[in-house]
Computed example of a mutant assay.
Amino acid sequence: MPHQIAVITGAGAGIGRATARTLARAGCDVALIGRDAARLQDTAAELAELHIRTLTIAADVTDAEALERAADRIEDTLGPITLWVNCAGAGVSGQFVELAPEEIRRATDVTYLGTVFGTRTALIRMRRRGYGTIVNLDALSLPRPLRSIESGARAAIRAFTESLRPEILHDGDRIQLSLVSLPAINTPRFVWTRNHTGKRLRPAGPVFEPEIAAEAISRAAFGRHRDLRVGLSGVGQRVAALLAPSLLDRRQAVHAYRQQLEKHPADDDTPDNLFTPVAGAHAAHGPFDHLSRRRMPLLLTTTLQTILAGTALAVGAAALLATLRRGAADRRG
C-alpha cells in the first residue's frame, strides 16, 4: 500500500476534525478542506505534534472548480491522493413548508452535491493510478420530521454511492467506495444548523462522540469495507417501517418532535453556518458531551450485516414453519 495522502472536507470542526486527528495518528499526511481558513489552521496546529505533513485549503465544496484546484495543489504539495473523505454538510431544520427555497437548495448543495463533487474530484485522480479509497457518510436512523432536507440529501448520497460502484468495477480499477452509516454524533451541527423550530435542537436516540465516527471512517478506509454501520441504532425502526409503516408514521408524528427539540427556546441571535462559516474557534465536539457515549459500539461490516440478515430470515422461516405445523396438527386433532 502506498503512503497515504488523505483529503478531508469539512475538516474545520465536527466529524471532519476528529477524522483528521485519527488519520494523522495512523500516519497519513492530511489535506484539510473547509470554508473557514482560520479554523483549518487551528486543526492543522493540533496535528503538528504528530509529525505528519498537512495542507489547509479554504474552499466551498459546492464549487466544483475550487475542489479541482484544491486537488491539484494537494498533489503538487503532498503527493498523489490515496484517500478522500467527504465530511462536509450543512442543514436546515423545521417544518418543510416554512423553509425558504434558497435554504433548501443550499443545504442540499453542501451535503449532497458537496459529496458528489468531492467524489468526482478524487475519482478523476485515482483512476489515473488505478487505486484509492473514497468514503461517504450516511445517516443510520430513519428519516425524521423537521429534517426532511438532510434526510433527502443522505438518501441521495446512498443511492449515488450504490450507482457509482458498478461503474468502478466495470473499469477494473482497485478503487474502494465506502459508505459509513452513522448514528447521532455530538458535533457543533446542533448549534450551527439553521433552525426554524423555535426550540434548541438536540440529538435523537443514542449519541456518540465524534471520535467514534472518525474511528469508523478509518476502519472503513483501511479495511476496504463496502458498507460499515456504527451500532444498531435505528434497526428496530427500519423493521417497523417494513412491517407497519403507517403505525411508524403516527409514532414519528407524536414522539419525533420531542426527541429532537429541547424544552428551552432557541436564541434568536444564534448564528448558523448554512451560507457562511460561524466565526470563532470550534472543536470536534458539540454541546452534548454529558449525553455522549465514548465506547465504540458494534461495527456492522457488509459481511456481518449479511450474516445477521440471513440469520434473521432463517429464524423467521423456522418460526413460520413451526406455526404452520402446529396449525396442521391442530386441524388433524
Rank of each mutant, 00 (worst) to 15 (best):
P2M: 13
H3N: 12
H3V: 12
I8T: 01
G27Q: 07
G27W: 03
I33M: 05
R35V: 00
A37K: 09
D42E: 12
A44G: 00
A45M: 11
A45P: 05
E46N: 11
L50Y: 06
I52D: 01
L55K: 11
T56K: 09
T56I: 10
D60I: 08
T62P: 06
E68N: 15
A70K: 02
A71Y: 06
D72S: 15
D72E: 12
E75F: 07
E75L: 06
E75W: 08
L78M: 05
G79K: 07
G79C: 06
P80F: 07
P80I: 05
W84E: 03
V85I: 14
V85N: 05
C87E: 00
A88V: 04
S93N: 15
P101A: 06
R105V: 14
R106I: 07
T108Y: 13
F117S: 08
R125T: 02
R129C: 05
G130F: 00
G132S: 01
V135G: 05
L137V: 09
D138S: 14
A139W: 08
S141F: 14
R144T: 09
R147L: 11
I149Q: 02
S151N: 08
A156K: 04
R158F: 13
A159T: 14
T161H: 06
T161F: 05
T161V: 04
E162R: 15
S163C: 11
L164I: 04
L164P: 01
E167C: 08
I168M: 02
H170S: 15
D171M: 14
Q176T: 11
L177P: 03
V180W: 06
I185G: 00
F190Q: 00
W192I: 13
T197Q: 01
G198Y: 02
L201Y: 02
P203Q: 06
P203F: 04
G205S: 04
V207C: 01
V207Y: 00
V207H: 00
E209R: 10
E211A: 15
I212L: 03
E215T: 12
A216N: 01
A216K: 04
A220E: 03
F222M: 06
G223R: 06
R226W: 11
V230E: 00
S233A: 13
G234F: 09
L243T: 12
A244H: 10
R251Y: 11
R251H: 11
H255F: 15
H255N: 14
R258M: 10
Q259Y: 10
D269Q: 14
D272M: 03
N273F: 04
T276C: 14
V278K: 01
A283C: 15
D289E: 10
L299E: 02
T301D: 04
Q305A: 13
Q305V: 09
I307G: 12
T311V: 15
L313S: 14
V315M: 09
G316C: 07
A318T: 13
A319M: 13
L324R: 15
L324Q: 11
A328D: 14
D330E: 10
R331C: 12
G333V: 12
